[in-house]
Design a protein around this nucleic acid. Structure first.
Length: 805
RNA sequence: GCCGAAAUGGCGGAAUAGGCAGACGCAAGGGACUUAAAAUCCCUCGGUAGCAAUAUCGUGCCGGUUCAAGUCCGGCUUUCGGCACCA
């Protein structure tokens, strides 16, 4: 028999799958139920790296397995091609981003095929394809029309060297990701999407989706729900005359008797409204300016140094005590959370405590505990359920009860109300960059902000060879006159286009819907097809940007559901996050990794099947694994043994000798495939092979079932052996059914314990009664048991027997 | 600081619902085949004591529940991930 020539054989099958389009999903299949397997977008930046093997192979295994199980499987792929990688290539190397994307995608497609991935290539697209981003723009128009998009002044990260606005990710540590220069804060027009409105719905989505608890938790953290009270305080001048009022938000209303000052965010609008009453308005303005210059990074890194500025001439009245307390500005209060103002109770909040020390503000302790060094904070006093102090009729009451009662009281008095707050902010949705979706928005001197007509979509991103923003940091599109100048869709007079583009996230926030109907030019997708394919059954990908991506996905799907475009509010039923492949230094392996190993290099050396198995034998899907060639010999050896099964096959159905091994293999493999536990599936195949090699033969039927079961993991070698032995394509087969009753032998061994200590094992037939087992133990004479003194017997049928003497 | 996940041989890692800890693989050691090597095949392989049968200890640490704990409970330690001046 010929030796296993993986190069030639893998090429043969990859060509055939490609040419015959073997993995096309069929809309409205008359008999088969649908199954939608989604793998995350590829970044179109040239080459696949090891991490892709870790992520893609399990999705491929599930897709191939489900096809065998009789499902009509949709398993598409595409490219996330707008954004930094292509734009950087354009700027640094002078490559047209369109060409960069086209070349990159071509590469990635070819490499995917070499891994043997069974994508439906007829549905592939990139986010920068005009046929696709037309619909991204269309969705934005719907958001705008339904009042979910608005434009406002906002503060953004800006790099003066690159003349561009940066996202938080691109400016980590206060340095520009591109050039390493300091990032500063500038005021700009910002498009926001009203994501905050969806906070509660997004939390429901998080509950709904089947996903690792840690991933759910980070999403809940991001949404950041908290429940508390909004309290109204009067503001007075020095003489006690009411001049205004102010709302603060607190989750600790129980400390309200301890308020000794109030703090506003520097940006709080009240400051301007009270200009006449503020005696030191100049220094207030100065403080404001100083904080505005601080970057987000500075504000966080200097968190412990409390700065602030007193508003001279203004006081707040604690509505519970009528005490007159000073009002400060301080940058530890954020304008975009709660009401942009807080009540300060230094004894029971560490930040207030530090601020009070810095500014010599008195403190009032209202809950038991030691406040001499630090504040006694909520976590501590709530867990201990400490007693109240200095709080009028609440004094002496346990804090949990007081919290309840005080909430009810302020509501009754009309000075406060229960309120829920979320950390999540509206989504800032524009970037001053070239390589993104243009906004379908026009500014008209007469009509204001005007959306394009749907029939005028797509608004095509114009060609240019100048990818840099102008000196003011405006998008490169602002330099292209023919793009900027247009007629107002409403009044027909001269107008200007929005020249910013959408962020990278936009295109990836709805793409699973487009796979369902990728060539539709009348709608985002045909409603009937959307109904047929429904939710994504399982969505696989890395965990890197998962929190925000999934929340954005929930948000858009929810919105599209509300306006009747899609049939379900939930995009995904289940999400699996793959671990990373780490290099020899324990760093994430990516294309930029110094110690990176290319998957193609490994495939060249060992073949695609061996590479697929090896990567997934190293660790479970969700675990990180350190890349190593160690162990790959074991996989090569295994595949070699699989190949040699051809030599020892004989006619016949499933034999008595192998039925237990075969049935338990099939059971194990089904369970593991469903849960993407490929490492234990592989070991189950190894165990089966071991038994077959001991016996030196297997039947044709046994070989057939073995090959089908292994095919999702190692599709090339199993296809080849199958064709040689059975004369047709393995893909025509269906997954072998196992017999549950034949997964275990009738004769089994169970451990015998005496007083919980293992003394040995005894062979019994299945489902024996306790008496029969005891009789066998007695007869065997093997176990030194004093049967007269056996006080108690614990017998778990077919599992264990424990004798207590 | 808060939240989440994890810690098992020389190594990667198994152990479905509390029931034989270390599956499967690598590395290592021994043997067969070979002129030799590679490849292949067979055997051994958690620690300690013993020629051995066997005994005894052993899943990050300290306690507990249970006939029985890697698994459950209480208290720590360390590592990784998320959030973080969020009132």
């Amino acid at each position: 028999m010929a030796i296993y020539d993986f190069k030639q054989i893998e090429q043969k099958w990859q060509d055939r799958w490609d040419k015959e389009e073997k993995f096309k999903a069929i809309d409205f299949h008359p008999t088969k139920p649908k199954y939608y397997v989604l793998y995350e977008f590829f970044n179109v930046s040239g080459n696949l790296h090891m991490g892709h093997l870790k992520g893609t192979v399990p999705s491929d295994v599930i897709a191939r397995y489900k096809r065998f199980k009789g499902y009509n499987v949709l398993f598409p792929i595409g490219g996330d091609s707008f954004g930094l990688p292509a734009e950087n290539a354009a700027i640094k190397k002078g490559i047209n981003p369109r060409k960069f994307v086209a070349d990159g995608m071509k590469n990635v497609v070819a490499q995917s095929k070499r891994i043997g991935l069974s994508f439906d290539w007829s549905r592939t697209f990139c986010t920068s394809d005009v046929e696709y981003y037309k619909w991204t723009q269309w969705i934005f128009l719907q958001l705008f029309k339904h009042n979910k998009a608005y434009k406002e002044k906002g503060v953004v990260n800006f790099c003066e060297h690159c003349q561009t606005v940066l996202s938080n990710e691109d400016s980590q540590g206060g340095k520009c990701d591109r050039c390493g220069n300091e990032v500063i804060q500038v005021n700009r027009d910002v498009w926001f999407l009203k994501m905050k409105e969806y906070s509660e719905k997004l939390l429901k989505n998080v509950d709904y989706i089947n996903m690792a608890e840690s991933l759910k938790e980070s999403q809940r953290n991001w949404i950041g729900k908290s429940e508390g009270v909004e309290l109204k305080l009067d503001l007075v001048d020095e003489n006690g005359n009411k001049i205004s009022n102010l709302k603060i938000y607190t989750t600790c209303i129980e400390t309200a008797y301890g308020i000794t000052f109030v703090v506003l965010a520097p940006e709080n609008k009240l400051v301007d409204e009270l200009k006449q009453n503020i005696k030191n308005f100049d220094s207030v303005l100065e403080y404001r300016q100083k904080t505005a210059l601080k970057t987000e990074f500075d504000r966080i890194s200097q968190a412990k140094d409390k700065t602030g500025c007193k508003l001279e001439g203004i006081y707040a009245i604690n509505p519970l005590t009528n005490a007159k307390v000073p009002v400060y500005l301080a940058d530890f209060v954020l304008n975009n959370y709660g009401t942009g103002a807080v009540m300060a109770v230094p004894c029971h909040d560490q930040r207030d405590y530090e601020f009070a020390k810095e500014f010599n503000i008195p403190m009032i302790q209202v809950i038991e505990g030691d406040c001499s060094q630090n504040a006694v904070e909520k976590y501590e006093y709530i867990t201990k359920n400490s007693k109240m102090l200095n709080s009028a009729e609440f004094s002496g009451m346990p804090v949990r009860e007081a919290k309840q009662k005080m909430t009810e009281m302020v509501e009754k008095l009309g000075i406060g109300e229960r309120k829920v707050n979320y950390k999540m902010q509206d989504w800032s949705f524009n970037r001053q960059r070239y390589w993104g979706e243009p906004f379908p928005i026009v500014f008209c001197d007469h009509c204001g902000v005007v959306p394009l007509d749907e029939k005028d979509l797509p608004l095509v991103l114009p060609e240019t060879d100048d990818y840099l923003p102008n000196a003011k940091g405006d998008s490169p599109l602002s330099k292209i006159d023919s793009f900027v100048h247009c007629k107002c869709p409403k009044c027909g007079q001269d107008a200007r286009r929005e020249t910013d583009t959408m962020p990278n996230w936009a295109g990836s926030s709805w793409y699973w819907l487009r796979y369902i109907d990728p060539h539709n030019d009348k709608a985002l997708a045909d409603p009937e097809k959307l109904k047929y394919w429904g939710e994504v059954d399982v969505y696989l990908g890395g965990t890197e940007h998962i929190t925000r991506h999934v929340l954005y996905a929930f948000f858009w799907q929810n919105f599209l559901y509300e306006i009747g475009v899609v049939p379900t509010p939930n995009p995904f039923k289940r999400k699996l996050g793959s671990g990373l492949i780490l290099d020899s230094e324990g760093k994430k392996m990516s294309k930029s990794s110094v110690n990176g190993v290319s998957p193609l290099e490994v495939i060249d050396k060992y073949g695609a099947d061996a590479t697929r198995l090896h990567v997934h034998f190293l660790a479970g899907y969700e675990d990180n694994s350190m890349w190593t060639y160690n162990g790959i010999d074991g996989i090569v050896n295994f595949l070699d043994r699989v190949w040699k099964l051809q030599e020892i096959v004989k006619d016949g159905g499933v034999s008595k000798e192998h039925e237990i091994e075969l049935n338990s293999l099939l059971k194990k493999v089904e369970d593991d495939y469903e849960n993407a536990k490929l490492n234990t599936a592989i070991s189950a195949f190894m165990i089966f092979i071991k038994k077959i090699r001991e016996d030196g033969w297997l039947t044709k039927e046994e070989l057939k079932q073995f090959l089908i079961a292994l095919n999702p993991l190692a599709p090339h070698i199993t296809s080849e052996i199958f064709e040689r032995v059975f004369g047709h394509d393995i893909l025509e087969e269906s997954f072998p059914e196992y017999d549950k009753n034949k997964t275990e032998r009738d004769e089994i061994e169970i451990p015998v314990q005496v007083c919980g200590k293992l003394k040995g094992k005894i062979a019994i037939s299945k489902n024996l009664s306790q008496e029969e087992v005891l009789k066998l133990i007695r007869e065997s004479g093997k176990f030194a048991v004093d049967f007269e003194n056996v006080k108690k017997v614990i017998y778990v049928p077919n599992k264990i027997i424990n004798l207590i003497v």
